[in-house]
Amino acid sequence: MKFLIFLIFLLFPYLSFAQIPVKEIKNEEVWQGKIFIDGIVAVRNSGKLIIKEGTEVIFKTIDIDDDGIGDSELYVEGEIYVYGTENFPVIFTSDKPVKEPSQWKYVMVNHAKYAYFEHAIFESAFSGLQIHFTKGVVKNCIFRSNVDGFRFSTANIYVCNNIMTKNKHGIRYEERDSKGIIEYNHIFDNEIGIFPVTACYNMVIFQYNAIEKNGYNIKVGYEQKKDLTFKNNYFGMVFERDIKKTIYDKNHDKHLPKVNFKPFLKKNILRSRIKCLENGY
């Protein structure tokens, strides 16, 4: 009996740290209806994933490595096309009835051929969507109740008319070698609206966004060196001194660079109908 108990004790680490199940997509695959992801779905570089309107992609809440972040994820190195519509968006969510951040990991697009997201909802993830080393278009999507709504680095991106709300960071990025335009997005009610962490060089243009009612509308990361420009955005206020208070930069910590936000919009132009560019800039 003692021997049996000792045996179980030796094997317990192995039993409790089972491998995360992985499914690979190497060719073209189309999703519609309800899709359950238990573990990792990896779209390989030869793969192409098309997700049709109204599809619900439900990530099972598992945390095998016990780091407090769900382990289910969609990992794309091929192509991904998400074709939601206004009335029938594609939803990326967890399997829990009560949605909270980090219940699943992310939709990660990394060294991929192309990524297109239209009318998708990302909720209750660690990061709703991450794009790296890829050209990506993200339009008319909603990012809510995630730790990071949208996150990117070294990407060519067009991000237009999206809503980022109730996340810890609406948009978090390390620009590095990125280029792109982020425009007409409504970024509100997040702890931090926009978090430029480090290595940002104003090559990604933020314009015509409504960045308002966040804990900080913009918070500059401690390792960011260069002054940043966020011109032609609406901050929910008309006076410069009020806007300054919502931006955590040199004015709060002399070691940080400055955020230049002038000229700023005095009206929220998102009230009018926005037409994003079809395939990006």
Binding site: V22, A42, R44, N45, Y75, T154, D177, A199
Partner: peptide, 17 residues
């Protein structure tokens, strides 16, 4: 440093990760 645009780059493809 991080890879940059235009840099030649490739990963071992016999496994998904």
């Amino acid at each position: 440093g991080t890879p940059v645009q235009g840099e030649r780059y490739g990963l071992y493809e016999e496994s998904f990760d």
